[in-house]
Structure formats: C-alpha cells, structure tokens
C-alpha cells in the first residue's frame, strides 16, 4: 500500500540561506510523527510546506495519492494548531469552532450538535459563550484543537502547540492530544523542540538540524542507536570520549569518538578487568542529588575529559564519592556508540 504522505527531495531556499536540503520521508496513515530539532533547523518550514503556507521550490509532496506540491492551502486537506492558538479573538468559543462548518453551509442543528460534541470531547462543555481572551492558555489550545478537527481533516498539523503552556498543563494536554489522535486514527505531524515531548508522544521522530534530516526512527531507536553525534547529543545526555589514542575498545584505523549515556557508566572501587567492558580510572569532581539518582561528575585521570555518570540512589551508599576520591568506572562495550571524528563540533 502507498504511504499516506510522502515528501520527495524537498528543498527550500531563503535568499542565500538553505532552510531545507533534500528532505525525503514517507508517513503512514494514522502515524504520529514529531519533527524535532533546535530552533532554525527548518522543522517549522517543513510543516508549513506540507500545509502549503510556504512554496516548494524543488521536490514533490504527495498526500493520499495526489500530488499536492503546488496546491494552495485551502485546496489541501489538513487541520492546523499553532503555538499562538490563533483563535479569532472577537468570536465566541462556539463560533470559533463552528466557523468551518458554517462555511460548509451545514444546518443549524448539525452545527449545534457537532460543536457541543467537540466541546465535550475537549472537556470544556461549559465555555461556548466565552471569548478566547477569557480562557487560560491550555483551554484556548483545546479550543484550537477542536476547531482544527471539526471538519475531520485527513492530516493534523501541530506547530509547537504546547510550547507556550505551563509545565503541568503541557503534560496534561499532550496526553489529551495523544488519546484523541489514537481514537480518531488521524495522521498527525507535530513540530517541537522539546525532546521529552517528542519521546512521549511520537510513533516516530524525525530529528532535524541545519535543514537536513539527521535520523528518522522510533523514540527508542533514536535514543539507543543515534545515527550521528548530533542526534546523540540532542536527545538525552551523552558523554563523548575521544579515546582514539590506542585505548582499549577503540576501533583501529580511523580516529573516532565514543558516546556513552550516563546511566551506562558504573562505578567500581577495584580495577578488575573484563573482556566485555572498558575500565577507566577517574577522580570524582562533584556530585549532584537528583532524587531517584545521583549524578557524579568525574575527571579522567590521564586526560582532560570529564564524564557524567548517573548512579541509582540506592546503590550510592556503598561507594565513597567524596570529591577528590580516585576510583574507576566501567562501561560495557555494547553500550558504547561510535562516531566518526570529523563530526566533532
């Protein structure tokens, strides 16, 4: 079966600046995709191109079997939610949600019924008569979501929908969005710069940087097998060790860099060697209490690199972690990621 949405070799140029460089991907029906990357990486531009809000200079966009590359937005099939909510400020919540149906000349009864249904769905049945300005940010974004979904579009586009909200509201609303999306089975693309949000919500994440796709994969794959040093550093915390100088575990030949997650570093008092792990003597620099774990910063004794290790809190009592203490860490070889040297920033 053909994919629901496919992007083929998209390019976008703003003057001299290449905003997007040869972007290709396919998205299946019902998938929840996150475009993730630092600001300026082109993720919002890509979303706007899918919506038809930015022109597409090269490449093609196919949706549901049709070439939509050059269609204006109103000829496409999508609903959209912005960070700024973009509710019509002078219309009531009811009218905001109803306006799409009114344009379709739906009957009064149908409009009434549909809007009330959606107000129920977003958990705000009482607010139809209020104006957007009288609602909290989270409430406004729910209304924007209902407005985007009421015409049952085939594709839902979310442009940083949670970024303007408080932490608690954000977590609550992301659950709402995810539940609703699964219920409706609607193909959804969300742009975000928050990796935690992307990991929690997405079926697949598209990691972008400088207008290029760095990696596409499930949250787990992206965390555990980052395809590049950028992805490794952007998602979660990663220690980078330059062990090219003939150290154990280093691949021979090309100089390269090793990446290790803090939770994969273990402390040990003795320097007992093992075939499937690498041992490094370190000095404890600093510790930081983080609730379920203790973050230990240590300095490698024979070079200037530092390491961050996360030690589960109930394993801490046994070890001597006073700053200045010299000890050893060990890392299993299978937990190490290898990156080419020239990717170093």
């Amino acid at each position: 079966m053909k994919p629901f949405l496919s992007l083929e070799n998209l390019n976008k140029q703003f003057g001299q600046f290449a905003a997007l460089n040869d972007i290709s991907m396919t998205i299946e029906k019902g998938e929840f995709i996150c475009f993730l990357g630092p600001s300026g990486c082109g993720k919002t531009t890509l979303l706007r191109m899918i919506a038809g809000l930015e022109s597409c200079e090269q490449g093609q966009i196919w949706q549901n079997g049709a070439n939509i590359t050059h269609l204006p937005p109103e000829k496409r099939d999508f609903g959209i939610v912005f960070q700024s909510y973009a509710l019509f400020p002078n219309l009531t919540v009811f009218e905001n949600i109803a306006i799409g149906l009114r344009q379709q000349r739906a009957s009064k009864v149908a409009i009434e019924q549909q809007v009330n249904h959606w107000l129920e769905t977003i958990g705000l049945p009482e607010i139809g008569d209020k104006f957007p300005g009288q609602l909290s940010g989270g409430q406004q974004q729910r209304v924007a979501l209902a407005r985007a979904l009421i015409l049952s579009p085939g594709l839902l586009l979310l442009d940083e929908p949670l970024s303007a909200l408080d932490a608690k509201v954000r977590i609550h609303l992301r659950e709402t969005i995810r539940t609703l999306q699964k219920q409706l089975g609607i193909t959804t693309i969300m742009v975000t710069h928050d990796q935690e949000e992307a990991m929690a919500m997405a079926d697949r994440i598209v990691v972008m940087n400088h207008g290029v796709v760095e990696q596409i994969g499930t949250p787990q794959a992206i965390y555990q097998q980052p395809a590049s040093r950028f992805v490794a550093g952007f998602i979660g915390v990663m220690n980078f060790l330059d062990l090219a100088g003939g150290k154990k575990g280093g691949k021979k030949g090309q100089p390269h860099i090793i990446g290790v997650r803090p939770e994969d570093i273990h402390l040990t008092a003795s320097a007992a060697g093992s075939a499937d792990s690498l041992q490094i003597p370190v000095r404890i620099e600093r510790t930081e209490f983080q609730g379920p774990l203790l973050r230990v910063e240590c300095q490698l004794i024979d070079c200037s690199s530092t390491l961050r290790a996360d030690i589960p809190i109930h394993q801490v009592t046994t070890a001597n972690l006073t700053p200045g203490t010299e000890t050893c860490v060990w890392i299993e070889h299978r937990r190490m990621q290898h990156f080419r040297q020239e990717e170093a920033v």
């Binding site: 109103e74 909510y85 002078n90 407005r147 015409l151």
Partner: peptide
C-alpha cells in the same frame, strides 16, 4: 496585534481571506 496565523487557520478551514478580513480583522 491580530494573531498572525489566523489566515493560515482560515485556509485550512476553507474560509476565504476576505471573509476573515470582514469577520475578524476589521472588527478587531
């Protein structure tokens, strides 16, 4: 001061821009 993305939203709801102008931009 008018939300910048309302035209984009309107396009997704198939509402022509001139209608948004009379219905929202002008009253605001």
């Amino acid at each position: 001061k008018v939300p910048p993305d309302i035209e984009a939203v309107a396009a997704s709801l198939k509402i022509p821009h001139h209608k948004v102008f009379w219905r929202v931009t002008l009253p605001v």
